[in-house]
């Protein structure tokens, strides 16, 4: 399905990245359009995280090329951004990403979706690392951002959680959103997954 450049949520032109004198990728160019699920692939140290940080706008130098962000985006990085001294509810309600003001009902529903029903008002330091990641993933249920950039979203998540998350990604893509994620595991989803190889560019 060919699309004009105006429709895409994110466009990348001639991206080259060099770290410590080693070229990680060069002349990377692609667009992310609504309904697209893009998996960034490559071995450890290939620059997957660096690419996602460049796409999100967190990395602002050290690379050449141009990234056009045409829509609000949600970025989940390696760190869960969950404060141990706050409860999951407070973590989401006062989140520093400043996305929207959610009411209690929305937050409870999102926490229930990630399997934290009953943990809403438990201090987060009593939760496990996997549960911290789940609190962070609850943001996906709340978010209205069309574009999601997820860096290794399945880390420390159990099998059931992975399946839930995969369903969520498909739903989001079906609603006209787009997802760019890095992961080493093969996605079992009921929609087309495009693979972006950092060495070879966009694969079918």
């Amino acid at each position: 399905m060919p699309q004009g450049p105006g429709d895409s949520l994110l466009a990348v032109y001639d991206l080259c990245l060099e770290r410590g004198g080693r070229e990680l990728f060069r002349d990377l160019a692609f667009e992310v359009s609504p309904g697209q699920l893009l998996q960034v692939d490559g071995p450890n140290g290939a620059g997957k995280t660096s690419l996602l940080r460049i796409l999100a706008g967190l990395s602002r130098y050290g690379f050449s090329g141009r990234v056009e962000r045409r829509t609000p985006l949600l970025y989940l990085g390696h760190h869960p951004a969950v404060k141990a001294l706050l409860t999951p509810r407070e973590n989401l309600a006062w989140h520093v990403a400043g996305e929207a003001a959610y009411n209690d009902g929305q937050i409870e529903e999102a926490l229930a979706r990630v399997g934290l029903y009953g943990y809403e008002d438990v201090p987060s330091h009593a939760l496990s690392a996997g549960q911290h990641r789940r609190v962070n993933l609850a943001r996906l249920y709340l978010s209205h951002c069309p574009l999601w950039l997820l860096d290794e979203p399945f880390t420390a998540i159990d099998k059931g959680g992975v399946a839930e998350l995969e369903t969520l990604l498909v739903e989001h893509v079906g609603r006209g959103g787009a997802v760019v994620l890095t992961s080493h595991q093969v996605l079992r989803v009921a929609c087309r997954v495009q693979v972006l190889s950092l060495t070879e560019g966009l694969l079918a």
């Binding site: 970025y75 760190h79 951004a81 989140h95 990403a97 996305e99």
Partner: peptide, 11 residues
């Protein structure tokens, strides 16, 4: 804990 990068991305 990664909150800072989220703050930088806030609108």
């Amino acid at each position: 804990d990664g909150s800072l990068e989220q703050l930088l991305l806030a609108p």
